[in-house]
Every structure is written in C-alpha cells, then in structure tokens.
C-alpha cells in the first residue's frame, strides 16, 4: 500500500494509527505500507513519533504523478510484481475496518 499523506492534512493523520494497526496485523503476510509525503522532515518526524508509526515513510516527488489525484490522502495498492491493483486510487481517509476489507480482497 502506498499512502500519500501530508502533515497538515487532518484526514491523513487521523487514519495513520489505523494504517499502523493494519501494518502490524498483516506484515507477517507480506503486506507493506509506504507513507509518501512532501512535508518538512522535522514535521514528518514529530508526526510519525507522536502517532507511533513504524512503517516506512518515503519522500514524495514527481515520480508519484501517475497516482496523483490532487487530494490527500490518496492510496494505491501494488502487488509483489509491481502491478497496480486498484483501477482507481482510493481518495480520502478510511477506518480500520474499511481498509482491512479492501486489503483482504487483494490478499485473497
């Protein structure tokens, strides 16, 4: 899962604890979350520390254009061979139950 987020975005930081829970529960099945952001590094560090996020955070740049919807959070799923799984990116924050349902549909 590539989750594009920003530190100033309420729905983004709001769903991050749920994403962390999802990562903790499913990483044993090969599930990985990459949080992609263009925010300032100091703000990223304090946000990640405060929310207890342990999944990798990467810097977002123009290479993410193909997934860009103009909104954050935007999330896409990519399989182990590099194929994009979702026909449309997921726009907006979701609850743990919603993300789990989506994830399980891909893990099947």
């Amino acid at each position: 899962m590539i989750n594009m987020w920003e530190t100033w975005c309420g729905p983004c930081v709001n769903e991050m604890p749920d994403l962390q829970r999802l990562y903790t529960n499913y990483k044993s099945r090969g599930f990985l979350i990459l949080g992609a952001t263009a925010s300032e590094k100091s703000e990223i560090r304090s946000t990640v520390r405060s929310l207890g996020v342990t999944y990798p955070i990467i810097m977002r740049n123009y290479q993410f254009n193909k997934f860009d919807t103009g909104y954050v959070p935007t999330t896409v799923f990519i399989d182990g061979d590099g194929y994009v799984l979702s026909s449309e990116p997921y726009v907006g924050g979701r609850s743990y139950a919603e993300w789990e349902r989506i994830l399980l549909s891909y893990l099947k």
């Binding site: 729905p11 709001n14 907006g92």
Partner: peptide, 20 residues
C-alpha cells in the same frame, strides 16, 4: 474521533466548511 468518510465527500458544499 474519525473524520467522516461519507460518500458525499466528493461533492463540494457552497460555504466554508472544512473537509476535516
């Protein structure tokens, strides 16, 4: 403690009302 995820969030409202 969650931002509403209503399906209608794709629609813009006329006034100043934060998405968050």
């Amino acid at each position: 403690g969650r931002v509403s995820g209503a399906a209608t969030k794709k629609v813009c409202v006329p006034g100043l009302n934060c998405y968050s």
